[in-house]
Each structure stands twice: as C-alpha cells, then as structure tokens.
Amino acid sequence: MFLAHINSLQASIFSSLAILSLLLTFVMLGSHWLKNYVYAFAAQSWLIAALSASVGYFSGYRELYAIAVLTALFRGLVLPWLLMRIVSRLNVKREIHSVLQSSSSLVIGACVVMFAFVIANHMSRQQQGAAHVVILALTIMLSMKFLGFLMLSVRDEAVSQILALLVLENGIFLGSQILVPGMPLLIEIVILFDLLIVVACFGMLVRFLVVHAGTTSSRELNRLVG
C-alpha cells in the first residue's frame, strides 16, 4: 500500500490538488453561466490528470501516466469541446429557472461536504501517517457525489444535468486515483471511453429534445406523471 509510506510533501500535493477540484465544483454550483460550468469542468479534469501523474510519479505505477494523458485529452479537451458545441447550438446562455438561489445552494453544498466528512471518517481505519489523505480523498469523493446530485436536482437545463453527471464521475475518478492507484488499467481506460459515448448519446438526445419536445429544460418535461 503506497499510502502507508507517504511523506508530507506528497501528502500536501495530493491534498491541494484534491481540494482545488472540490473548489471548482463549488464554482460550478455557484455560477449561472453555462460556459463557466464547462470551463470549470475542464479545469477540474486537468487537475485530476495532474493528480494521476503525480500519484504515478510517487507510487511507481507507471501506467498512471497513460491515464493522466487520456484524462487530460478526453475529459480536459474532447468532452468540454463536445459540451461547448451543445451549448452554442442550444442558444441558452444561462440557467434562468433554478430552484435554489446560488447562495443557498452554496450553503447547502457546504453542509453536504461536512456530511461527507462524517461518513468518510467512519469508513476508514488507516494508520496515523496516511489517515488524513485517505479521509480527505474519501470526503472529496463523497462530497463531489453529493454536490453532483445537488446540481442534478436544482438545475433544469439539459446541459447542466449532463455536467452534473460528469461531476459525479469526476469525483469517483479523483478518489480512485488516490485510494486505488493499482486498479487495473483496462478498466480505467474503458470507463474513460465509456464517458465519451455517454456524452455523445446525451448530445444526440438533446437534439431530439429540441426537435420533439420543444424544450431542453427538465422543468417543462412534465407530461409523464403518476
């Protein structure tokens, strides 16, 4: 277990990258502009790529370099580009009808992070040295999960919902780089590839929504109830 022999420099690099990613999630949560979401998502993906590379460097799992390159390429460039195409095609610049104000969603987001910390604290039993990195990784993994679901439930625009789903996945990816760097390469590559297909499908579906349902706001998708 490489986390058991981690030194303070490595710990602080991992922690700061992870915390910065969490902050970017809050940027997405607080902003109304769809373009800002995409930029924040791209930046977050680059941070995760940097994290993969640094874990690869310190732990000796050389295949993490490949993951880092693929993450930067797919999540950092291709997905934001696809999303930007959807945004520009839709002609929607900002979320208008959000259920919650930005400020209140930030406050709820903060509470959610605390809740994630409590769960993370119960789940790990590491030795002293690595404990805070492990708990931090778990906390950020869970809180990005919760924040993603929060965004999914308070945002209406189709693009925001796609981004919220991507945040859910980013959280898992980030946590798994720290907790299980030895996870087989094949699975990680396939998951990355899978993500690409997901976004392509969402893109097609958004087009159908515009043509057949006449709206991309989930608030107006209310024909099917009961």
Binding site: F149, L152, F202, L205, L209, H212, R223, L224
Partner: peptide, 18 residues
Amino acid sequence: REAESTEAAWKYIVVVSG
C-alpha cells in the same frame, strides 16, 4: 420520437446514469 417518448428517454438516461 414523440414529445412523450423523448421525455421518457431523457429521464431514463439521466436518472439511470446518476
């Protein structure tokens, strides 16, 4: 490709992916 089925497809993929 009617409004209802597109809505159902959208809800399906969002809820299940989440």
